[in-house]
Design a protein around this nucleic acid. Structure first.
Lengths: 248, 248
DNA sequence: CGTCACTTTGAAAGCTTTCAATAGGAGTGG
DNA sequence: CCACTCCTATTGAAAGCTTTCAAAGTGACG
């Protein structure tokens, strides 16, 4: 769900005079000069099914991306942070609703013009591709989490993912509510709460506030996560219980 | 990194296998003339973590794409059919293992050259984008399924998805085993089996063989699926209705 | 026609959810 | 600045759905 300012190899820098850093354009540059839109926590940026008119560059704050079933069940597909680009993996309509978790500032850009621009720029094209591949990678990790991890593994995986993305030292911020976490992890708010309590009791996490948490034993957490490094294919599978590695 | 490859100027145009075609070239054209590789059911095409050297055009058969946790738990991220292109959403390494569900025939093409070609073709670029967006869309539907649907809804959603993709009349083929279905739906083989039995008893499906199934009452199935048409967002924000919006 | 692998079915166990109530925090107003 | 209120989070206990364990059934194939 994230995008990275991936790959911007400083290739020509050596040839450039000291002064004007004519770095290759980044996707973020596309949004330069666009007006800044502000949203308060809880506000929607757009809804699933809306005509996908814009792409967004997130300057500040955190967003959640979600889908809702007819009976009200909600699933959060991901959280979007400052520096991420929102709305690239869309064709004509938004695939999900996006709402502000915290107060948010974004720059908006016409989707058509965005794709035209990117399409015409040999520098930007690979960046777009990189974003899409990163999103796909994150989505697949999430499918693994939702399909095969238990509650504790899900919560720990989430804490570690947040740490990787925005952690400072061994501390992380969780701006979203427990309900958001639950809807992201395919759990209930109570289960998330219980897992957090259990982790605290075991000394694996230390809650400074409800939304600030220290991870004093990250490696122990990694052991609990089930895996943040899903390993490749296994042969012969010594440990694979009942679950055939080589069906058929 | 594929993105670097994408930026690499074409230097060996002479080797390009894309034949002059009258109509606008399609991604499949890129694979034309490549030798056909065959795999038997159960064989792996590539492994998660392998260097992503190739992109594949599936000519025949069905593949499964999966990830495995260290203790052997497996999650299937999707099934790939003839006509699909495999391996586009990759950076330098394959994100998942791909195995043949049935006997399979594919054409293989160097990933670097593939991205170079696509990057240089104004006709192919949008097609690649479209594929990635479709993959993203499918991944998000799957996250919704895994995070918020119950066993019955998962199985029915799957049957409907297969029908949409490859159904003939009201009949579908399920070339994969129950274990594959289970690992795709985040369930166990027993639960899948029980759900199929229950659906049969209710007359919602009719099993001709273990792998051939008729859906005589598709609309009834759609009602059961939870939704194949996730509706738009909720107004307001952080206070999503905890459960059902309407009384159950 | 027998074997092997996959599937179905049954019963008990387990993990997460549901229901219910208490606790904690942030913001507001006196 | 403190009391009050509302909303979010935590905790407890029971219920429920899916999994686990076990065994029988079915079908493909040599």
């Amino acid at each position: 769900m994230y995008s990275q300012a991936a790959m911007t190899p400083a290739r020509n820098t050596a040839f450039l005079p000291v002064q004007p850093v004519q770095r290759a354009p980044t996707l973020q540059d596309v949004f330069r000069g666009q007006p800044v839109d502000s949203y308060s926590a809880g506000e929607a940026i757009f809804w699933e099914g809306d005509t996908a008119g814009h792409i967004f560059d997130v300057l500040e704050g955190v967003l959640r991306v979600c889908k809702i079933l007819p009976d009200g069940r909600r699933a959060i597909m991901g959280f979007i942070y400052a520096g991420d680009v929102l709305g690239v993996s869309m064709q004509s309509r938004y695939l999900f609703t996006t709402e502000a978790v915290t107060d948010v500032k974004v720059r908006r850009f016409s989707r058509n013009r965005f794709f035209t621009l990117v399409n015409e720029s040999p520098e930007l094209r690979p960046q777009l591709l990189a974003i899409l591949c990163d999103e796909m990678s994150a989505a697949q990790d999430q499918m693994l989490l939702l399909g095969r991890k238990n509650a504790e593994e899900r919560v720990v995986s989430f804490l570690l993912a947040v740490h990787r993305k925005t952690g400072v030292g061994n501390t992380i911020e969780l701006p979203m509510s427990r309900l958001d976490m639950a809807d992201y992890l395919g759990l209930t708010i109570e289960t998330v709460s219980r897992m957090m309590t259990a982790l605290t009791r075991r000394g694996l996490i230390v809650a400074t506030g409800r939304h600030t948490i220290a991870l004093p034993r990250i490696n122990a957490l990694r052991d609990v996560a089930g895996t943040d490094e899903p390993r490749g294919g296994i042969q012969g599978g010594s440990s694979a219980p009942r679950r055939a590695v080589w069906p058929n």
